[in-house]
Each structure stands twice: as C-alpha cells, then as structure tokens.
C-alpha cells in the first residue's frame, strides 16, 4: 500500500488542463459562491449550474461523469440538515412515527433540505474538477498570486511535499502494529481502550520526533544549498488572452445563474 492513492491530479492535455491555475481557482470559488447565494428551490438556476458543470467536465477530457464518482463524499454530512425536513413550518406532506414521536415533513422543509444537498453536491464537484485538472503545486502558485501570505503558501508547499513521506511512514507503523496484534486461545486479546489509545499516542509521539528531526535535516540540506531565510521561486505563469476571455465568460454565465435564480 502506498500513499500515491492520494494524488488527485489526472494528467491530460485538455482545454481545462491548459487554463492558468488562477483562472480555475477564481471560477471554482465564484461557482461555489453562486450556489450558496441561490435561493432555495431555484430549480432552473440549479439546473443551469449543473449544465455548466457538465460542460466543464466535458471540456476536461475526463469523461462526463468523472466528478460524479467522488461527489458522494458530502452525503454523510447531509445528516446535519435532516432536521429542517420537520422543523420548518409549511404544508404537511406526510406524517410518520419515529420511536415515540409523530413527525411531520413539510413542503417548505423538504424544499430546503433538497436545496442544501444540491448546493453542496454541485460545489464539491467543481472543487474535484479543479484538483483533477491542476497540479497541486500550480494551485499553490495560484494562491501566491492571489495574495495568500507567502509563509502560508510555503507551509502548504512543504506539507504537500512531505505528506506522502510521512503518510507512508504512518502506513508502515500501522502495519507493524497490525502484524503484532495477535491473539491466543484462552485469553481476551486487545487490551483496554485506554491502552490502545496510549499505543496510538506513542505512535503519534514517535512520528512527531521523527518529523522534527527530519525538519532539521531538511533545513541543513537547504542551508547547504544557500538558503538564507528567503525562498526564491520562479513562478512562470503568465495569463494569456484565452485565460482572460474564459474568466470573463465563466463569470458572466455564473452571474446569469443569479439573475435566473432570483426572478
């Protein structure tokens, strides 16, 4: 098992892949903002947003249903919105018995619940498309250009670099624990919950020390190559005309969704 499964980038040379990463970040955020701004039950606007998403999918050469596959990650969270089904006053649709309570689902509650789930489902798919078509270092470069503090983008860049190394280390630690998690007949195996938590804590402590010492070595390696506290990077991205045009068009279309959703 290898942490490479974490890589979300899908190499291709589509129109979307070639767009500047800033364009993709800005349009993604605008799209998500637009979803959040749309009023409940703005079905036409939701539908148009979905078509926009499908169109972006199609332009990315990843297959029309690509973002759909991973989009269900938000579904468990929908649980927190379940209560609006029965808590918003409106025309009763159906009443059912739940343990000892009679619950009434109202039309307004149902509309709100469905709207929340749709907003979330559309938004997450655009975010999935962003990282599937953009190398993560380019996303970080985009953040730099968009005035995210340098120290933060540097931390994020280091995090991304060492994420794979440390997660592999965790996998190996967990595997070594698993290999010794044995049982013999006649004894209750596994120890107490507190003992197991303590073992996990020891692993975390062990990992902390190794990471700390690794950062020393990394720092020395940086010094050896002339690091003086300033990370100079070349950020070769340059916006072309197609980037400007695409951004303008996409933002205009997203603005239209708002108009459609509010009339």
């Amino acid at each position: 098992m290898h942490s490479d499964v974490f890589d979300r980038y899908h190499a291709a040379n589509s129109f979307i892949h070639r767009l500047d990463s800033r364009v993709k970040v800005v349009v993604t955020v605008a799209f998500i903002l637009s979803n959040a701004l749309l009023p409940d039950a703005a079905w036409t606007a939701f539908g148009l947003s979905w078509l926009f998403l499908l169109f972006a999918n199609a332009l990315s050469d990843l297959g029309p249903g690509f973002t759909l596959q991973r989009s269900f990650i938000v579904l468990p969270f929908a649980l927190v919105a379940v209560t609006v089904l029965v808590s918003i006053p409106g025309e009763p649709l159906t009443t059912f018995r739940f343990i000892a309570w009679d619950l009434t689902i109202t039309d307004a509650g149902l509309l709100r619940f469905v709207s929340i789930v749709i907003r979330s489902w559309l938004s997450v798919q655009m975010a999935i498309l962003l990282v599937a078509t953009t190398r993560f270092p380019d996303v970080v470069h985009a953040l730099e250009h968009l005035r995210v503090p340098f120290i933060l983008t540097t931390i994020i860049a280091f995090l991304y670099r060492y994420l794979f190394v440390l997660v592999d280390e965790v996998f190996r630690l967990l595997r070594a624990r698993e290999a010794r998690s044995a049982a013999v007949a006649g004894f209750r195996a596994g120890g107490s919950v507190a003992w197991r938590a303590g073992v996990a804590g020891n692993m975390a402590g062990q990992l902390f020390l190794r990471s700390y010492e690794r950062s020393d070595r990394v720092y020395n390696a940086m010094l050896a190559r002339g690091y003086t506290g300033h990370l100079n990077t070349i950020n070769p991205h340059e916006l072309r005309r197609v980037d400007y045009v695409t951004t303008a068009l996409a933002l205009f279309v997203i603005l239209l969704f708002q108009v459609v959703g509010r009339v």
């Binding site: 280091f158 995090l159 950062s215």
Partner: peptide
C-alpha cells in the same frame, strides 16, 4: 519555515493513526 511545513505534514499524517474503540 521547513519546521512548520513538516509539522503540518506530521499533523496530517498523525490524523491517520487510529485505534479501535
């Protein structure tokens, strides 16, 4: 800078250390 970056990776990785309850 490298310390905080690697510590961020540490927190991320440490979130994967679990124990059966």
């Amino acid at each position: 800078v490298p310390l905080m970056g690697i510590m961020a990776a540490f927190i991320f990785a440490a979130q994967m250390i679990n124990f059966p309850v």
